[in-house]
Design a protein around this nucleic acid. Structure first.
Length: 305
DNA sequence: CTTTAGACGAAGTATTA
DNA sequence: TAATAATTCGTCTAAAG
């Protein structure tokens, strides 16, 4: 630990166990190439495989002292107090009913805790990979809790419900992420599982979900493209005008934001290629072309004077 | 060689009967 | 539930820079 080597070979990602960890000079952070985990501290051979990501969480989590490795209920030892209400001597014991109740309560609450612990560990990794802002993370945790209490997690798997909770939370806090991005970050093959769980959340939890606006995407896209404030403001202006013209209804918000950004870049003389923008917006160049043609037409903008 | 423009069919979605 | 209309995407061709 005394050795503050930035040699990636020595380090193991606490989340996925990969050794492909690089030091990001710009941010001063360690980043796992495999799962994208960002960690400010040097991570050198953590030994145990359970996870913590900063001192705050280590403190919060070490409370139980229970390695995540042991996932069997009651550490594999399960005590059953049967319905006959006999005690260990085989006699009927009127107190056994109460014991049984408590036994069940304790088991239920501890399995709930285990579920949350695992879910929130995964949430940390996910939030790190997706660069989620703190409010979105908090909201996702809250939604997941509610979902668990409603019994939505059973039979659906932690990952799909967690993914759906993150998806919903991002939407709500106006930092939208696609279901695909989330699925990818979770190493899930198909995003539909997340979307299915998301629909269930919507129905059973009554989430106040507004449709995603194109401008919700602007800050993230703009920062990834390293464009100036002026360009971002210009893009915002373009989006508003386009909305007034009514050409945005029924179109994908990301495509509109991407096109507005593309136009704004050219107008402000900070040119980016369609390819670059398509990359960060997760849409194709074709979509950008269609949208930006429509917008130019509707707003009377001529990019080739 | 890279970027942009446009056409086509495939796939998934929303709307309507 | 089935048919339909609109949207997005991937691929391909071609022109422009």
């Amino acid at each position: 630990m005394a050795n503050s080597e930035k040699d990636a070979g020595e380090m193991v990602c606490p989340a996925c166990g990969s050794r492909e960890i690089v030091f990001d000079e710009e941010r001063g952070e360690y980043v796992c190439e495999k799962c994208g985990l960002v960690n400010e501290e040097p991570v050198i051979d953590p030994g145990p495989e359970w996870r913590h990501f900063n001192s705050d969480q280590r403190q919060r989590r070490s409370r139980t002292g229970e390695p995540a490795k042991v996932r069997l209920p009651d550490k594999g030892l399960s005590t059953i107090i049967d319905r006959e209400l006999r005690d260990s001597s085989g006699r009927k014991n009127p107190h056994m009913q109460r014991l049984r109740t408590w036994d069940n309560r304790i088991k239920a609450s501890s399995s709930r805790e285990r579920n949350f612990q695992q879910a929130f560990q995964e949430l940390e990794v996910l939030a790190s990979k997706l660069q989620l802002p703190e409010p979105a993370k908090e909201r996702a945790a809250a939604i997941y809790r509610k979902a668990y209490e409603k019994g939505i997690v059973r039979g659906r798997g932690i990952e799909s419900v967690l993914g759906a909770a993150v998806f919903a939370a991002c939407k709500e806090t106006r930092h939208p992420r696609t279901a695909r991005e989330i699925a990818e970050a979770l190493n899930m093959p198909d995003e539909n599982e997340i979307l299915r769980a998301y629909r269930v959340l919507q129905r059973k939890l009554g989430l106040n979900q507004r449709p995603t606006e194109p401008s919700d995407h602007l800050p993230r896209f703009a920062s990834k493209l390293n464009v100036s404030e002026d360009v971002e403001a210009k893009a915002q202006e373009i989006i508003e005008k386009a909305k007034e013209k009514g050409i945005t209804v029924g179109k994908g918000p990301a495509g509109i934001a991407a096109a507005a950004l593309y136009i704004a870049c050219i107008l402000e003389g900070e040119r980016r290629t369609q390819r670059e923008i398509a990359e960060v917006a997760k849409v194709t160049e074709v979509t950008i072309r269609n949208r930006y043609k429509e917008i130019c037409e509707a707003l009377g903008i001529d990019l080739h004077p």
